[in-house]
């Protein structure tokens, strides 16, 4: 599905199911972990790529394109499916995902290998500051594009996220939107238990950001929040997207084992039945 006309939420929902299915199949086949982290941010990725970002799949390096950085690079298996379905490259390129010699593995590589990928991410705390640099570059070069980053709640442990948050707030960088996939888990436990994240929205607000809180699986709320972010002209925007790790598959939802586990044959069968 290359395009969705208007805000057709039925189309969005069927796209979510289709891509969930592919992400889970790939994880099972290629034994690629971070399945829970991929499923929690899928709706955000879909809305960004089908509605929000000004991009041209036939000219992925168009200098005026909006930039999107998957700062939580471990959700690359979701991004790869989104980019393929959106038309950046043929879906059959993903047939060898996870195989020796493929460029499609567990994290996005640097630009030049996969059309649509803006930067290599996966070391947490790098992508969002890079998106900040891209937003600053737009201002310096008098370009109109916007810059977006999707970070994880666990990623907010990284000091560089807060360094970037302070500078963006100080620069009143209104062309930067950061979304937090707040699925309440990080690798080994509840994100709130490991580092004192809350009040998450309040922290960003106090750093000079326009902040919003939404249901990160609800396309209407994603749409509204991104519109609001665009209308804010004096501050960078932060959207805390409440999500469920492993969203869409009953036995994976909010079960952090699916940070590292991959489905066996029976689990794959059960998961696909739910989609």
């Amino acid at each position: 599905m290359n395009t969705i006309s208007g805000n057709n939420y039925e189309d969005f929902n069927s796209l979510s199911k289709l891509l969930r299915k592919r992400i889970i199949e790939t994880s099972a086949k290629a034994k690629i972990p971070h399945l829970g982290s991929c499923l929690s941010c899928l709706e955000i990725l879909i809305f960004l790529y089908w509605k929000e970002l000004k991009i041209n799949v036939n000219d992925p390096e168009d200098i005026d394109r909006d930039r999107f950085l998957l700062s939580k690079g471990h959700a690359a298996p979701a991004l790869f499916q989104v980019l393929a379905e959106r038309g950046f490259y043929k879906k059959d390129l993903l047939n060898d995902i996870g195989e020796s010699g493929s460029v499609f593995h567990e994290h996005p590589p640097k630009p030049g290998f996969i059309p649509g990928v803006e930067a290599a991410t996966g070391s947490l705390g790098h992508g969002m500051p890079m998106a900040l640099g891209m937003a600053m570059a737009a201002n310096i070069k008098h370009q109109q594009y916007r810059s977006y980053a999707l970070i994880s709640d666990g990623e907010c442990n990284e000091g560089s996220i807060w360094e970037a948050a302070m500078l963006a707030g100080s620069l009143k960088l209104a062309n930067l939107t950061v979304l937090i996939d707040f699925n309440k888990w990080q690798a080994t436990g509840r994100s709130e238990d490991i580092m004192a994240l809350e009040p998450l929205q309040g922290k960003w607000k106090s750093f000079g950001w326009h902040t919003q809180e939404i249901d990160g699986h609800n396309f209407t709320e994603i749409n509204t929040s991104l519109n609001n972010a665009r209308l804010e002209l004096n501050k960078p925007s932060l959207i805390v997207a409440h999500t469920i790790k492993g969203k869409g598959i009953s036995f994976m939802e909010d079960d952090n084992n699916w940070h590292y586990r991959t489905p066996n044959e029976k689990e794959l069968h059960e998961a696909l039945k739910e989609l």
Binding site: E118, L132, G133, E163, L167
Partner: peptide
């Protein structure tokens, strides 16, 4: 500011933007 990790990454973002 005194925030070198961010400075280096944002420089990379700027460089990737020309």
């Amino acid at each position: 500011g005194i925030a070198e990790a961010n400075m280096m990454s944002l420089a990379a973002g700027m460089a990737l933007s020309g």
